[in-house]
Amino acid sequence: MWRWTCTQEHRRRFAGPGSAVLMLGLLLSLAGQAAAQGFADPLETPAPRYADGLAGLPIQALANTGEALLAVGLRGVILRSEDAGRHWQQMPVPLSSDLLDVSFVSPQHGWVVGQDGVILASEDGGRTWTRQFDGRQALEQLSRYYQDDTALEPQARDAYLDQLRTNLQAGPVLPFFSVRFVDDRHGFAVGPFGMFVASDDGGQHWRPALHQIDNPDFLHLNAIAQVGEHLFITSEQGIVFKADRSGAHFRPVSTGHVGSFFSLAGHGDVLLAGGLGGVLYASHDQGESWHALKSPLTQLVSRIEFDLRAQRFTAITAGGEVLELSADFSRSSLRQSAAPMLYTDVLSLPGQVIYAGIQGLRPDSAEPVQPSRGEQ
Rank of each mutant, 00 (worst) to 15 (best):
I304C: 09
V227M: 05
G268M: 06
R312E: 11
P252G: 07
A282S: 05
V240Y: 04
A282D: 00
A273E: 01
A273K: 01
H291V: 06
L308Y: 03
L280H: 01
F241T: 14
H291W: 10
A292H: 10
K242L: 08
G274T: 04
S246Q: 15
Y281G: 00
Q311L: 12
L308I: 07
A223R: 12
R251L: 11
A315V: 02
A243T: 03
L297W: 00
L264F: 07
P296L: 07
E321F: 06
G247R: 09
V322N: 05
S254H: 14
W290M: 10
L280K: 01
Q311E: 15
Y281C: 02
G247S: 11
F313S: 07
G247C: 11
T314A: 13
T234R: 04
H249A: 06
R303G: 01
A273Q: 02
T255S: 14
D269Q: 14
D307M: 05
L271F: 14
A282T: 02
Q286K: 15
H257T: 02
I239K: 11
F313M: 09
D214N: 00
D214K: 00
F313K: 08
H284E: 15
Q299A: 12
A310N: 15
L271N: 08
G274I: 02
N215A: 06
V301A: 04
L293D: 05
H257L: 05
F250E: 11
A292E: 15
L293C: 06
I233W: 01
L264C: 07
E288L: 13
I316M: 10
H267S: 13
H284A: 15
S283Y: 08
E229H: 02
A223E: 12
A265V: 03
Q226Y: 00
E305Y: 08
L293N: 04
S289W: 03
S295T: 13
I224F: 01
D214P: 00
A225S: 15
S263H: 00
S295N: 08
F241W: 11
G277E: 13
L297T: 05
I316P: 10
S260G: 14
S246H: 14
G278P: 09
D307R: 06
G266S: 08
P296S: 10
L308S: 13
W290V: 12
Q311R: 15
R245C: 00
T317F: 08
F232G: 13
A243K: 05
I239G: 05
G259L: 09
G247K: 09
V279F: 01
L219Y: 10
I213Y: 00
P252L: 09
N222C: 03
R312V: 05
S246M: 11
Q286C: 10
W290L: 10
S295D: 11
